[in-house]
Design a protein around this nucleic acid. Structure first.
Length: 555
RNA sequence: GCGCCCGUAGCUCAGCGGACAGAGCAGUGGUCUUCGAAACCAAAGGCCGUGGGUUCGAAUCCCUCCGGGCGCGCCA
């Protein structure tokens, strides 16, 4: 990336200036290169001279001048200026900018991809909602953050695997089976009470009826424990089908659906327990088996095996992460969790240390919860305590692209309200359409050009020199930087902001620069601009694709 | 009480320790005889919650207080 080349350029210039005595000797720091927010401050800038003032004991402006005098002159730079209190501003050359259109056209769909990841194996585990009911809007945020992050990491050069962890073992699953049993029995006219703390949602009633319809009375005649087991599996199947349909509706594909149960069936859990015992991280207390997280920086110890003999959720988590790192060999694992699981994070890092794994290999993204509202009123979301608005309903009401964009466009640490009424009302005055409209407009221009028999092949991009042409190219060139930013900070929302910027820049270009001209004198310019427009389409489509949104040819 | 996250324009939110704090929506005024007006332009709108500190430089980092969210189970 040019940003890095400029940093290197400055670094060399400082060395050179020191060698010739224009600057005193000091350790050269990492050169920060930023995008100035102010127009007129060039394409890139570095405030490094301000930092250097004390170690060089010179005024920042004089340092900057000394550096500029020893700077090489690569073809991508037009000028370097010393400005303000000692900034160095770099302006890209028009010729080089115009040439980038060809570079983008050649790269095609791969444009923007960078090699940050060096093919390292990374797993993104997301959603992983309990299979005890339909997904809701909170899972939607999890889905979008995880999916887009995975897309970004692919573009950043990682070898990415997407995984959904299916909690098909444990207490909640048992409660779910009992709830389903009750609804099933009721559907067949039996007077069966719901279990204490059972799943009250109306979807359970529907599920009970479905089971009754598909399997008849057979489970009523069985031993209760056997019936619960069988019905639990059936309910699990129903729920997973529904979750998989929701996920598919959002355009998400998981590489692997990992069953929690298998951790107990294939001996992984036993192996991990043996390992932890060996390392003395296991104690027995009050009849339960504990993991001593506090010995490893955790905030409290954690029950692994409950006094009743059943493993707790943390038991699965340890075994699961052992499987991820040790058995499957992921270099890096990213878990996407809602803020309600926040308190669990310190124990996870304690677990990494206990397993002898570098905690840096685990990243846990905590996103703040989404409050669903309808006309300003809060809608409850709990699966356990009753009815709720499902993700499916929201997707069907508001549209997949709009939901995805909305959930993506805020930083994960910011809490958000999702108002159904507002989302629908604004569906025509929506940033989603603003971005997609730019893509449709581009497509339309290319259609018109084709109808008039204009081809962009052979167009000469060096004719591109209009300020708005160059501004558009400049914006297109930021995509790799945005991907790098989103990947290093695990912050996919930067893409949303970039998409808006890019679309806006295109609309402005469209205002000032006519592409398809009927004037024969404009023939060459038209062909050059068609190339630019094709390149813009590539970049915008790529950005939309990274966000998992459609890039419509027309709207 | 303790821990984590958030307080930025009327609303929803961007803003990687750097130059004069931005966008979308809403509201005001303007722009369609040629490529899509789902667009563009202009004006307006802000003690960046409060008070301290670190720094050449703080919306950004640290601390106090105020306000909101989420945790603090042998549930996940």
């Amino acid at each position: 990336m040019i940003k890095d080349e400029i940093a290197e350029l400055v670094h060399h210039a400082i060395e050179e200036a020191q060698k010739r005595g224009a600057l005193p000797t000091f350790d050269i720091p990492k050169i920060p290169v930023e995008r100035p927010k102010q127009e007129g401050h060039g394409d890139f800038a570095t405030p490094v001279c301000l930092q250097l003032a004390s170690s060089a004991r010179m005024a920042p402006v004089r340092i900057a001048q000394a550096i500029v005098e020893h700077l090489a002159h690569p073809d991508y730079l037009d000028s370097v200026e010393v400005a303000g209190p000692g900034y160095m501003n770099f302006v890209l050359s028009t010729r080089w900018l115009a040439q980038q259109v060809e570079v983008i056209l050649r790269a095609g769909e791969r444009y923007g991809d960078i090699d940050l990841g060096k093919r390292r194996k990374v797993q993104v585990e997301f959603i992983s909602a309990n299979p005890t009911g339909p997904l809701h809007i909170g899972s939607g945020r999890n889905a979008v953050v995880g999916d887009v992050l995975a897309n970004v990491l692919v573009a950043a050069g990682y070898d990415v695997q997407r995984e959904y962890y299916v909690n098909d073992a444990g207490t909640q699953m048992g409660l779910f089976a009992e709830s389903l049993y009750a609804r099933y029995a009721q559907a067949l006219g039996q007077d069966e009470p719901m279990p204490e703390g059972g799943y009250q949602g109306s979807y359970m009633v529907a599920m009970g009826q479905r089971a009754a319809r598909e399997y008849g009375r057979r489970f009523l005649d069985m031993e209760r424990s056997e019936a619960l087991k069988a019905l639990g599996d059936i309910g699990l199947k129903y729920t997973l089908e529904s979750i998989q349909a929701d996920v598919a509706l959002m355009g998400i594909h998981f590489d692997h659906w990992f069953s929690e149960r298998t951790l107990y069936e294939d001996g992984t859990f036993d192996r991990v327990m043996a390992l932890l015992r060996e390392r003395n991280y296991i104690v027995e207390r009050d009849g339960a088996v504990w993991f001593t997280a506090t010995a490893l920086g955790g905030d409290k110890d954690e029950v692994i095996i409950r006094s009743g003999g059943a493993p707790g959720y943390f038991a699965s988590d340890i075994a699961y992460h052992y499987d991820k790192f040790v058995r499957r060999g992921f270099d890096w694992v990213i878990d996407v969790w809602g803020a309600d699981h926040q308190g669990h994070v310190p124990r996870m890092y304690a677990m990494m240390r206990a397993l002898g794994l570098d905690p840096k290999r685990l990243s846990i993204i905590i996103y703040q919860l989404v409050t669903l509202k309808r006309g300003g009123e809060v809608v409850r979301l709990s699966k356990r305590t009753g009815d709720m608005i499902t993700l499916r309903e929201v997707l069907e009401d508001v549209g997949v692209d709009a939901v995805r964009f909305f959930l993506l466009s805020r930083a994960v640490e910011s809490q958000m309200d999702f108002d159904l009424e507002l989302a629908k009302e604004h569906s025509n005055e929506n940033p989603v359409y603003y971005i997609q409209y730019a893509h449709a407009r581009i497509s339309s221009i290319l259609r018109v050009a084709q109808e008039r028999g204009l081809e962009s092949d052979g167009g000469d991009v060096s004719l591109l020199s209009h300020p708005m042409e160059l501004a558009l190219i400049r914006r297109m060139l930021m995509l790799p930087e945005v991907i790098e930013l989103a990947a290093t900070n695990l912050a996919p929302h930067h893409l949303a902001a970039y998409a808006l910027d890019l679309a806006s820049q295109f609309h402005v270009f469209y205002r000032d620069c006519r592409v398809v001209s009927s004037d024969p004198a404009d023939y060459e310019l038209t062909r050059a601009r068609l190339k630019l427009v094709r390149a813009a389409k590539i970049v915008l489509a790529k950005t939309l694709r990274l966000m998992g949104m459609s890039a419509p040819e027309q709207m």
